[in-house]
Design a protein around this nucleic acid. Structure first.
Length: 876
RNA sequence: GGGCGCUUAGCUCAGUUGGUUAGAGCAUCUCGUUUACACCGAGAGGGUCUAGGGUUCGAAUCCCCAAGCGCCCACCA
């Protein structure tokens, strides 16, 4: 019919239009329908900082496959998209942009700066929305959310208030990771480590000599520590010692602490509790005084004498010069160590003491039967119990390890962009009140009536930790929340298992008393051809949009899904995408050919079993049923790659290579051609939605493919025996072709063949035309049996004997040696089979099917050898 | 320092609870314009599954050990 269909599929021409039709159809927007099973994915919200990369692309591809599959299964399927305000990341990005214009946030002031951020965010949200659409993602735009939306902000405040009232949130003066550039705290896992070559200074320290990499912190020392068992220093323990310093003498106490390694340096360390985590802990254990000397901008404080106001780096230089002058510097060594840096801007972290808000992860607050559990215990429990399943399972261990070692979570950030901490202080007496809105009453302590809000904002992961339920309307009791939560699958990269997954589990089990999701699916990172991480600086990044432009979305999606397994990194490069583009084209042409061979009437016909006619029909239908079963099984177990590969193989190697080829000529059966086409389009649709939908348009269907019904396994369409016969014919044709090629018979030249078919004679006779056509035969003689035919090339498939009388091409001498070799090989194989089958251990332990299979194979090989021997005799 | 993972054809990777004479795509070689597709078709070559032990009737698959590579966590002044 549609002769005008173009030869090659041009993705670009159709994709945008198809996406618009889907969106308009309302299929992306499910309703609360108690008769249906809900299936829900909360899309990990991309940071509102700009463009999407391959990491997003792979996430969108995988999630869309799951979503489309479930939608076709008839579930009430919801995929909520959104964006994350990503406080530090976004603020930094805008600061960079301002810096290009010679501005900075302090010059602008908080309000104006936030205006700038708002504009920037709105812009990148638009970009992100378009890119998500480009990937073909069938998400529910009507429910799109942003972590700074009014509703989500309300959820954040509500959770904060609840946690505060439960005593989980407290304010404390503690040592924190401080980024002097961002001028903010960072959580432990927001610190990166960079290996760096540094200098180790050996300095005279009163009666001791010790090694330090940070001489400038000497100004904040309040103790020295040694290992309790270190004999060298035993007599000093507990003593107070006066140390001469660059700004005068000071006193320290000598303490014994297990954390000191006697083998490193001189075995003695100076303790600077205010500017080192380890030292802070030592100070806590020994109740040492704490002296801060570095401020929040990374500058030396007023108590540092002549060094006051210098940055730490300047101070180090200056102090070294002074130490040298005073003869305190003994030697300098090179050493490498891991420098902690800010994960957002790379600036070295300055540990310092600061008053911050924390979440207590160990306080038992969750009532569970008679016991009370901490949020940490609960988060461990839900994974241990299997209430949350992690795919692949290996990440469970990592999760437990991280969770078990979790310290109190510092949630306040001195960033302007984000959710303001809902705490109000009295102008008069600094009394703090936790409240979502400005207190209307006067201060209960001093009766003043002026309040100011805490200037800090919350860690961005605090709000994203609520994502699965805040997006469904919580704290309001919405229908949606009740119906769609817990969500079904959380799919994301394994790199944010801690940042995000762990926090969602903590925050949701605490707040709702239920898990945020039932399954966590973690995908790997996309790397370049050489296995390197893609990055802007390395210039090896691949832009998904560019690839979509070049090869089409469907091809990009397949290249991101096939060949990958959960939790493992995957390499991507253009040739790979091009390969899948070729497959898309193959689908297109397979469909095109099918459509060219059917009529309008055929298309309108409803398929039923009575339309099954030929052996080929029965074979392809049997294969199709097998495929449906396998696909269901693979998708259920999140084996997307396997599922995709199997469908790929079915379409290319079975439908196109064999069924379509066999349909050329008198054998074609439009009903089955169309039925199989429709079925595999459905199976394929979740993977490559655009090309399948485009083809579907030509099939006179009432609904779009995305809303069509998923194929069901139908055992009345399984014809095992016929399918087996067809396999024999395939082998037979394959062998004929292979021999032709081996004997260098010209491609187009027709040859003769004689088949002794045994019990398959009748079936083979029926397929005479196909065998002749596909084997390029001039004549074909089929009979039940007969003597071996000399001067011909012969081969045996089970009972079926085939002879190609190519007298002039067959060298009977060579043929004899070949046959001899084959017999030898086969006899050896028979021997191994026999010994296996005679082995009592095997027959006693192996499953029945395996024994049956091996027995059958033995019989077949034996019969082959028998035939080969007869052939051998006839040639002699 | 602690933990995890990977090592299978020239390249990129599959290989489910142990049961094949170990698979796919790309690349290579030979042939080919025939009712769709050269983004194609037909055929072929190519692997002692990193090395070494063990368990088992049977190991690419399970256990031990070694090497190389990679990741995560902790972090030493």
């Amino acid at each position: 019919m549609e002769n005008e269909i173009e030869k090659a599929y041009e993705a670009k021409k159709y994709e945008d239009t198809i996406y618009k039709r889907w969106e308009k159809s309302g299929a992306f927007t499910p309703k609360v329908d108690k008769k249906k099973t809900p299936f829900v994915i909360s899309m990990p919200p991309p940071n509102a900082t700009g463009v999407l990369h391959l990491g997003h692309a792979v996430m969108l591809a995988i999630e869309d496959i799951l979503i489309r599959h479930h939608r076709m299964l008839g579930d009430s399927t919801l995929w909520i998209p959104g964006t994350d305000h990503a406080s530090i990341a976004t603020q930094n990005k805008v600061e960079q942009l301002l810096a290009e214009k010679g501005l900075d946030r302090h010059k602008l002031g908080r309000e104006k700066f936030l205006e700038e951020v708002k504009k920037f965010v709105a812009n990148s949200q638009n970009t992100i929305r378009n890119q998500i659409r480009k990937m073909g993602s069938s998400c529910d735009w009507s429910r799109e959310r942003y972590t700074l939306d009014e509703g989500l902000t309300e959820a954040v405040q509500e959770v904060f208030v609840r946690m505060y009232n439960d005593g989980l949130i407290y304010r404390g003066n503690r040592i924190v990771n401080w980024c002097p550039r961002c001028e903010s705290t960072l959580a432990d896992d927001e610190v990166d480590y960079k290996e760096k070559n540094e200098k180790l200074y050996w300095i005279k320290y009163g009666p001791f000599t010790l090694a330090t990499s940070r001489p400038e912190t000497k100004l904040g020392d309040t103790a020295v520590a040694v290992h309790p068992k270190d004999k060298r220093y035993k007599k000093w323990i507990g003593k107070k010692v006066t140390i001469p310093g660059v700004i005068g003498d000071f006193e320290v106490i000598v303490v014994a602490d297990e954390s000191v390694d006697p083998k490193f340096g001189s075995g003695i360390i100076k303790v600077t509790p205010a500017h080192s985590f380890v030292d802070f802990e030592i100070a806590q254990r020994h109740k040492l005084p704490i002296k801060s000397v570095i401020d929040q901008k990374g500058r030396m404080m007023k108590n540092c004498g002549k060094y006051a106001g210098m940055t730490t780096t300047e101070c180090r230089k200056a102090i070294l010069v002074d130490m040298e002058k005073m003869g305190m510097l003994e030697k300098v060594e090179e050493y490498t160590h891991n420098l902690s840096v800010c994960y957002r801007c790379g600036t070295p972290i300055e540990p310092l003491i600061s008053k911050q808000w924390f979440i207590d992860v160990d306080k038992p607050v969750i009532q569970d039967g008679k016991k009370k559990k901490s949020i940490k215990e609960k988060a461990i429990e839900v994974v241990k119990d299997g209430e949350i399943k992690i795919v692949p399972g290996k990440f469970k261990k990592t999760y437990f390890h991280w969770m078990e070692n979790l310290h109190d979570w510092c949630i306040s950030r001195q960033i302007w962009f984000g959710h303001r901490i809902p705490v109000w202080y009295c102008d008069g007496c600094e009394e703090a009140i936790v409240s979502r809105t400005k207190p209307a009453k006067a201060c209960p302590k001093c009766k003043a009536n002026k309040w100011h809000q805490d200037s800090d904002t919350l860690d961005t992961w605090f709000s994203s930790g609520l994502w699965t339920f805040s997006t469904l309307g919580w704290p309001k009791k919405t229908e949606e929340l009740e119906y769609f939560h817990p969500t079904s699958v959380m799919e994301t990269g394994y790199d944010i298992l801690f940042f995000w997954i762990a926090r969602m589990i903590i925050m949701t089990t605490y707040t709702l008393g239920e898990v945020p999701f039932k399954t966590v699916y973690l995908h790997g990172l996309i790397r370049d051809k050489f296995g390197k991480k893609m990055s802007k600086s390395a210039g090896n990044g691949i832009d998904p949009l560019e690839m979509i432009e070049k090869f089409g979305t469907d091809a990009v999606r397949l290249s991101l899904v096939i060949g990958g397994t959960p939790g493992n990194d995957m390499r991507l490069y253009e040739e790979k995408i091009a390969g899948y583009r070729n497959f898309i084209n193959k689908i297109w042409n397979g469909a095109r050919f099918t459509l060219m061979n059917v009529t309008e009437e055929d298309i309108k016909l409803q398929f039923d079993q009575t339309m099954v006619k030929t052996l080929a029909d029965k074979w392809i239908l049997t294969e199709l049923q097998k495929l449906i079963k396998e696909t269901d099984n693979n998708l259920k177990n999140f084996r997307l790659s396997d599922a995709g590969l199997k469908i790929y193989d079915f379409i290319w190697s079975k439908y196109c290579d064999w069924y379509l080829e066999m349909s050329k000529g008198e054998n074609k059966n439009p009903a089955v051609l169309l039925f199989v086409l429709r079925s595999f389009l459905k199976l394929l649709h979740p993977f490559v939605p655009f090309v399948t939908e485009k083809i579907w348009e030509s099939l006179n269907e009432k609904t779009m493919l995305l809303s069509s019904e998923w194929p069901k396994y139908d055992k009345t369409l399984v014809f095992t025996k016929d399918a087996d016969t067809m396999e024999i014919i395939h082998q037979l044709i394959g062998k004929i072709r292979s021999l032709r090629s081996e004997l260098k018979v010209e491609s187009g030249k027709k040859i003769h063949a004689i088949i002794h078919g045994g019990k398959h004679t009748e079936a083979l006779e029926k397929q005479r035309e196909i065998i002749m056509k596909m084997g390029t035969l001039e004549s074909l003689e089929i009979k039940k049996q007969g003597p071996k035919i000399p001067d011909s090339k012969a081969f045996f498939i089970g009972e079926v004997e085939t002879y190609l009388p190519l007298k002039d091409m067959v060298d009977s001498g060579k043929e004899l040696t070949r046959i001899k070799k084959e017999i030898e090989q086969k006899e050896q194989f028979i021997k191994s089979l026999e010994s296996k089958l005679n082995n009592k251990g095997f027959t006693a332990n192996a499953p029945k099917e395996v024994i049956q299979k091996e027995t059958a194979r033995l019989l077949e090989e034996k019969s082959n050898v028998k035939k080969l021997k007869e052939l051998q005799n006839s040639l002699k």
